[in-house]
Write a protein that binds this DNA or RNA. Structure first.
Lengths: 208, 208
DNA sequence: AGCCGTATCAGCCAAAAGGGTGAGAGACGG
DNA sequence: CCGTCTCTCACCCTTTTGGCTGATACGGCT
């Protein structure tokens, strides 16, 4: 039985220590490197060959986890990437998977779940926490509720508190078009005011 | 030199493990108990005497950290309570301190900072992370920006996306009064639309 | 007693947002 | 080639919101 080598990427030292301690209980796993940021993770991968990268999405300043995943994939590193994060926002899940993540775990996952996900990842299996899976499932089941790229862009600006006029200027479109997009967004989110849309977006999508 | 006994309260197993590992490196500290929820923390305190409680604020379902702090204080437990959490929202800091927390640390704090905070806490010293302290300071410096209880209540409902009419019904006041409160809130937050107020509130106060 | 902060309400007016309909231009896939 | 999606824009009309001014009432502090 070969040992699964792991790179831990998380900006919180305590989380890295905890994960290291946890994985240390498994004879077939070994944490061979740690990184506190996306940049550092890429560096580590240049030197240390690992089988699995376990990565947090939110990482303070600098590049976020999604970006890091994309870059690792681009550079043709062959590691399996597992997302290990606190919040399960719809947008993050989709973006992470689509950036090339093999699995998506929540930080309150049971140890066994984490071990299983890591073992599965090296075998090319995709593993996710139950709540995560159900969210993904729901997205696939209701394609009508998926925002178009333009709508998502607008919604993101909306959550910053911009007015229709400002949105128009920012996106180089007329106020009329802004209103059209907003109407579509409201319909998809199931709300009927911008206030509710902002509330829903921030809470659902983790648009902080 | 006596050993400082610690109770760890965090719903994430990895965080508890990490903290345990971290504190294990210090000869004068010993983690003697762990709890994954506020309820469990109270139970533990009935049986195990500890000098310091290190507690996360966000804890999935059930009682939140603030509530747990309040209850521990009410029951006259004499432990020093240290908040150890990810986000530094203005509201959380104020509420935690006012519920009886001795210190407020962010999860990305350096190990030395954590050790110092724990040692300080048992001596009755109050220690906080630099970003936390600066936020508190700013609140004290600008008393004009502190919302009244009623305004805070309204803002909290506002972030749920309610209209003026709905706010009025919910708070048993007229729409006119709602508008007055809103005008004051906007002035204090430095915005001029409800959308911006919601965005600011959710990002600043952590009103998730 | 007088002052101040807080909470309550009213009326007026201008600006912004929301709802509905219709429509043209590209892109993409069947 | 046609249908569907997406993005774009316009017009009309109603509702909501925001800005302003002013007023009453209660509690606490000096």
């Amino acid at each position: 039985m070969s040992v699964i080598t792991v790179l831990l990427v998380d900006d919180h030292l305590v989380v890295r220590s905890g994960l290291r301690a946890l994985l240390g209980t498994q004879p077939d796993m070994a944490v061979v490197a740690e990184a506190a940021s996306g940049e550092e993770a890429l560096q580590r991968l240049e030197h240390d060959a690992v089988a699995v990268v376990v990565m947090d999405l939110a990482m303070g300043a600098g590049m976020d986890g999604i970006e890091a995943i994309r870059l690792i994939r681009e550079r043709n590193h062959s590691q399996a990437i597992l997302v290990f994060t606190t919040y399960d926002s719809d947008a993050d899940i989709v973006r992470a998977v689509d950036a090339g993540a093999m699995g998506y775990l929540l930080k309150d996952a049971a140890p066994d779940e984490i071990f299983a996900a890591i073992r599965g990842a090296v075998q090319g299996k995709s593993v996710m926490s139950a709540p995560v899976a159900s969210r993904l499932f729901q997205q696939l089941r209701n394609p009508d509720e998926i925002l178009t790229p333009r709508e998502a862009e607008l919604l993101s600006l909306l959550t910053q508190g911009l007015s229709n006029r400002e949105l128009g200027k920012r996106l180089f479109i007329s106020e009329a078009t802004v209103k059209t997009h907003l109407a579509h967004i409201y319909a998809k989110l199931g709300v009927d005011t911008r206030a509710a849309a902002i509330a829903t977006a921030i809470r659902r999508e983790g648009m902080r």
